[in-house]
């Protein structure tokens, strides 16, 4: 379970302080498939980054199960990200010099998984995302949809408790976007991994089971399906 309590975040731009989040109270249960929607500048990405232990709030608390992540050192946060959090980015962010297989393998190397087990798991998850035949391709030899599948496999390979996807479909055409979303939903059902999206794409909002609308750094509304 993820819980944010009275979360504030200000950015300093020169000498001016710009508020990005202004008191967010949000509870996300394990296994949810949730979209955080809102126009650009509403604080979606900031909220995602704070939940993903990439950024720290100015004020407020984030609880990950019983851990208060505000009290973790940057090293401990790196460990938490390594074990519990998978990221999917708008721009895919695969490592260009590595093949699909190697990109997906990185998280397991960081967790010191033995090579034989790594191999089995990487091949299995790449099959899961329908990339079994392209495991030796480099990112620049794949389409956007294929790259995002690799990114999803990379996020899921370590069996994280949650996957954070920041506008995962923004660089994809709608047919591919639909495919990717179906895939994520399927994996969500199968693996019980929490999926949190940020988006302003109606397609993603349609797919989500719960949508939280942000506006000017505050929760403006919520919708459950």
């Amino acid at each position: 379970m993820i819980q944010t309590i009275d979360l504030y975040k200000d950015y300093r731009v020169g000498k001016v302080s710009v508020p990005a989040l202004r008191g967010i109270d949000l509870k996300i249960e394990n296994g949810e498939f949730i979209a955080i929607a809102g126009p650009s500048g509403s604080g979606k990405t900031t909220l995602m980054n704070i939940i993903g232990c990439l950024d720290v709030p100015t004020k407020g608390t984030v609880m990950l199960d019983s851990t208060n992540i505000g009290q973790l050192t940057s090293k401990e946060k790196a460990v938490l990200r390594k074990k519990e959090i998978g990221f999917v980015f708008q721009t895919f962010n695969l490592i260009p010099v590595l093949t699909a297989y190697e990109n997906v393998e990185i998280p397991l190397i960081l967790l010191n998984i033995p090579p034989e087990e790594r191999k089995d798991r990487v091949i299995a998850i790449l099959r899961e995302v329908s990339l079994g035949e392209h495991i030796n391709r480099k990112p620049n030899e794949m389409s956007g949809g294929q790259q995002q599948r690799v990114a999803i496999a990379r996020a899921l390979i370590k069996n994280p408790s949650m996957v954070l996807a920041d506008e995962p479909t923004a660089n994809l055409d709608s047919a591919t976007a639909k495919e990717i979303l179906s895939l994520m939903k399927e994996l969500n059902k199968k693996l019980k991994t929490t999926f949190i999206f940020s988006t302003h794409d109606t397609l993603v909002i349609d797919f989500a089971e719960r949508v939280v609308y942000l506006r000017d750094g505050k929760i403006a509304g919520e919708q459950r399906k």
């Binding site: 993903g52 990439l54 090293k75 790196a78 460990v79 990200r81 390594k82 074990k83 990221f87 980015f89 721009t91 962010n93 490592i95 260009p96 990185i106 998280p107 960081l110 990379r154």
Partner: peptide, 13 residues
């Protein structure tokens, strides 16, 4: 730089 960010997000210390 973005790649370093990605690696760090994945848990690279």
């Amino acid at each position: 730089i973005p790649e370093i960010g990605t690696l760090k997000a994945m848990g690279f210390s």
